[in-house]
Design a binder for these strands. Structure first.
Length: 257
DNA sequence: ACAATATCCTGCGAGC
DNA sequence: TGCTCGCAGGATATTG
């Protein structure tokens, strides 16, 4: 599920049914999440807002912040009590309108914890979180400067949350494919033109995915990630695959330079 | 500074 | 059918 557009989609799917509701109960099914703060401190509090920073989700209740990170398999869903509870439900918040917010996470790598509002930006993954790629102050100039300071491969940089927030393995591949840049290229070896293309396509790919609520069924044919033995959507050549940072990168040797 | 590796988990499909 | 293996849209600590 969860890269920037997916996290956005989760938030917009549940936002309206959360804001203004109070938390009337907490059920912790995964004891690794059982902290006093989660079990009792948020009880009775009203939900004021839900937002995102990188792939982290911030649920604001009075004075406290519930932090979620979906990692590989996490999801947040709102259900009626009588609806079947998914096998991998780790946490359930009972809401004042009778519904339930459920944190489902098959692989249990996700995060759910409560911190005081002022500590949200201090949690380890957020201290060095890079700029939001879709925000207005993420300018080409700042992107270019940051690229020049690195020597890693461009794929590593895109997936590195302290370089830019919210991009993972899939969108990293799609951004590079649309940009015509190979994942193995060095950040500080890109031409000005390539950097501009990359900047533009990064925002284009993420914006497009967000506009479709990360439901990519209509766009899938333009994608390269995960197409083992697949063909390039542009030129038809066989796609290439190699490991970068322990993850598979998919790309077209012909269309990407 | 960066790359590679192991780790946290569970489930699925491929290949035998 | 049942087994093992590799792999999965992530982040982090450790080692080289």
């Amino acid at each position: 599920m969860p890269e920037l557009p997916d996290v956005e989609a989760v938030i917009s799917r549940i936002r309206e049914r959360l804001i203004g509701r109070s938390i009337t109960g907490v059920k912790v099914f995964d004891m690794r999440l059982a902290t006093p703060a989660l079990s009792s401190h948020i009880y009775g509090k009203r939900i004021r807002g839900i937002s995102r920073r990188g792939k982290y989700i911030r649920l604001s209740v009075d004075g406290l912040t519930l932090v979620f990170h979906l990692r590989m398999t996490g999801d947040l869903v709102i259900k009626n009590p009588e609806e079947h509870t998914a096998k991998h439900t780790r946490l359930e918040l009972l809401l004042s309108d009778g519904r339930e917010l459920r944190f489902v996470d098959q692989r249990r790598l996700g995060v759910a914890k409560v911190v005081p509002d002022e500590d949200f930006s201090k949690i380890p993954g957020l201290v060095r979180m890079g700029p939001e790629p879709l925000s207005g102050d993420f300018t080409f100039e700042s992107f270019k400067t940051r690229l020049g300071k690195r020597r890693s491969t461009i794929k590593s940089a895109l997936m590195n949350q302290s370089f830019v927030a919210g991009i993972g393995n899939i969108y990293g591949d799609e951004i590079l494919f649309q940009s015509g840049i190979r994942p193995t290229r060095k950040t500080n070896g890109l031409t000005d033109k390539e950097m501009r293309t990359l900047y533009r396509k990064m925002r284009y790919v993420l914006n497009t995915a967000c506009a479709h609520n990360a439901d990519l069924r209509g766009l899938r044919r333009w994608f390269v990630h995960g197409r083992t033995k697949g063909r390039c959507p542009k030129c038809g050549a066989g796609l290439d695959r190699l490991r970068i940072q322990g993850r598979y990168s998919y790309f077209c040797m012909h269309c990407q330079r």
